[in-house]
Simulated assay, not measured.
Amino acid sequence: MISPTQSNTATPAPNQSSNGEKTTGLASDFETFLKMLTVQAQNQDPLKPLDASEYASQLAQFSMVEQQVQTNDLLSALGQALGGGNLDKLGKWVGMDVRTPSAFRFAGAPVTLFAKPDPAADKAVMVIRDSEGAIIDRISVPKTDQKMIWAGTGSDGQPLPAGSYSATLESFDGDKLLSEELASAYNHVVEAQISDNKVMLTLESGQVVDASAVTGVRS
């Protein structure tokens, strides 16, 4: 059974934050080394100039220190990108309920589904599928509604067992299928991770979705 209700507006996803860069102690040592080498070259005794091999050795040390500073800066930037900053961002997703177009978990309580019929449609049908993709019910819904309640029953009206289900809204013009839209539902986030610079959320239904697909969040 499906009952129409009023549409909701989505709440924003958790905010992101950035951390400022810090000057390392090695960078400070590098500046000091550069000044000392410059002063040494300016104040050497013209009658006893600095040995060329010793000067070359000091220049080599100078180059090594410079490379080490650059390496540390790069590692620090990578640590910021892959470590603390993003861990804080990921932690905000875990435990939240997010609304995405995906399969959903049914545990005995009615489920709110979100889908918008095609404007040109003269009828709309919500198709309910189980975790294997088999159709278990086809329910006519008002073509003007964008939010509806699924009671969790099959075509025979009997309650369905707990598990993962999905719903697709089919829009028709007469007998012509105009569009199919995977309905959105709220799912509990059980894990968040970064993959290819994207935040990926693992839902209680077992699906993994891109955080950019989230259209609503609630605790």
Score class of each variant (00 low, 15 high):
Ile139Phe: 00
Ala162Asp: 15
Ala213Phe: 12
Pro119Trp: 07
Ser3Gly: 03
Trp93Asp: 03
Thr215Tyr: 01
Pro142Trp: 02
Asn197His: 10
Ala27Arg: 04
Gly174Thr: 13
Leu201Arg: 14
Leu177Glu: 09
Leu177Ser: 13
Ala27Cys: 04
Phe114Cys: 02
Ile2Asn: 01
Ser212Glu: 14
Gly85Lys: 04
Met96Lys: 15
Asp173Phe: 03
Gly206Tyr: 10
Gly154Arg: 03
Asp118Phe: 06
Lys116Thr: 15
Leu177Arg: 06
Pro12Gln: 04
Ser184Leu: 03
Gly25Tyr: 00
Leu201Asn: 12
Val209Ser: 02
Phe106Trp: 05
Pro49Cys: 06
Gly95His: 10
Gly20Gln: 12
Phe172His: 10
Asp88Phe: 09
Gln40Ser: 15
Thr38Lys: 01
Thr202Met: 14
Leu82Gly: 07
Asp156Met: 06
Ala183Arg: 09
Val214Tyr: 00
Met126Thr: 12
Ala211Gly: 07
Ile149Glu: 04
Val190Tyr: 02
Pro101Lys: 10
Ser17Lys: 15
Ala183Pro: 15
Thr23Leu: 05
Ala109Met: 02
Gly154His: 03
Gly108Ala: 08
Ala109Phe: 02
Met36Pro: 00
Gln42Thr: 02
Asn8Phe: 07
Ser102Met: 08
Leu113Gly: 05
Ser18Met: 14
Gln40His: 12
Val39Ser: 12
Ala192Tyr: 11
Thr38Cys: 00
Ala41Tyr: 07
Met1Tyr: 14
Thr215Phe: 00
Ala107Trp: 01
Val214Pro: 03
Pro4Ala: 06
Met36Asp: 13
Lys48Cys: 05
Val208Gly: 01
Tyr55Val: 00
Ile139Tyr: 00
Ser28Asn: 10
Gly152Lys: 08
Ala151Phe: 14
Ala134Leu: 10
Pro12Lys: 02
Asn187Gly: 03
Ala77His: 09
Gly108Cys: 06
Ile128Leu: 07
Ser102Gln: 08
Pro142Met: 04
Pro12Asp: 03
Asp145Glu: 10
Leu87Met: 14
Thr9Arg: 12
Pro4Thr: 06
Gly108Gln: 10
Gly157Val: 11
Leu34Trp: 01
Gln193Trp: 09
Asp137Val: 05
Gly152Glu: 11
Ala41Lys: 05
Asn187Tyr: 08
Ala151Cys: 12
Phe33Val: 01
Gly91Met: 08
Lys176Phe: 07
Gly163Pro: 05
Asp45Thr: 00
Pro142Cys: 01
Val189Cys: 03
Ala52His: 10
Ala151Arg: 14
Asn197Asp: 12
Asn19Tyr: 11
Gly152Asn: 10
Met64Trp: 06
Val69Met: 07
Pro110Asp: 04
Ser171Cys: 04
Arg99Lys: 13
Arg99Thr: 07
Val39Tyr: 09
Ser155Cys: 06
Gln58Val: 12
Ser212Tyr: 14
Gly25Phe: 01
Lys176Leu: 13
Pro101Gln: 09
Ala107Met: 04
Pro110Met: 05
Ala120Lys: 07
